[in-house]
Amino acid sequence: MKVTIALIAVGGVLFGCGTALLLSRPLTRILLGAVLLGNGANLLVLATAGRAGKPPLLYPGTDPKDVADPLPQAMALTAIVITLALTAFLLAMAYRGWQLSGDDDVQDDVEDIRIALRAEHEGTRAELRAVLRADRVRQARAEETEDLDDEVWDHVLGADR
């Protein structure tokens, strides 16, 4: 199979640029990245057809050997249509994001940060709870010496004295 270096090189460049854009925050840049990536992939699929040839229309007298491989062309066409639909959807998303928040940045996952914070503060929370508990015990003892009703504290703390 003969391969066109130019197609593959262009595909590679498109992939590089697309990846760089895809790693940024604003959805419009991601959209451009996705378009570049899609085009790069289409070029690579097209490159699998081998060398260029005549249009794949088999009129009488056409030698099938001169004709370019039609299958990658059909695949690339399908993929182009799909990329078009996704581009439209991403544009709509970017616009909606701009409507909602004034920019189209992809936001962080709040719940994830919350869980991480919870884990981070786990130690502090345990310490605070221990301090609070010790405080209550001390208070209870103090009040006990004042002959207050200690059954209440038994009820609250359990019989751990």
Binding site: M1, V3, L22, L27, I30, A34, L37, G38, G40, A41, N42, L44, V45, A47, T48, L71, P72, M75, A79, I82, L86, F89, L90, M93, G97, V106, Q107, D109
Partner: peptide, 25 residues
């Protein structure tokens, strides 16, 4: 949430297309 999902899925679709191209080649 949708933005994350769409971007990841999009990337996987492109990878799939490239993989198909390689298989065909």
């Amino acid at each position: 949430a949708g933005a994350t999902y769409v971007v990841v899925s999009l990337l996987s679709s492109v990878l799939f297309l490239v993989a198909i191209g390689m298989v065909y080649a």
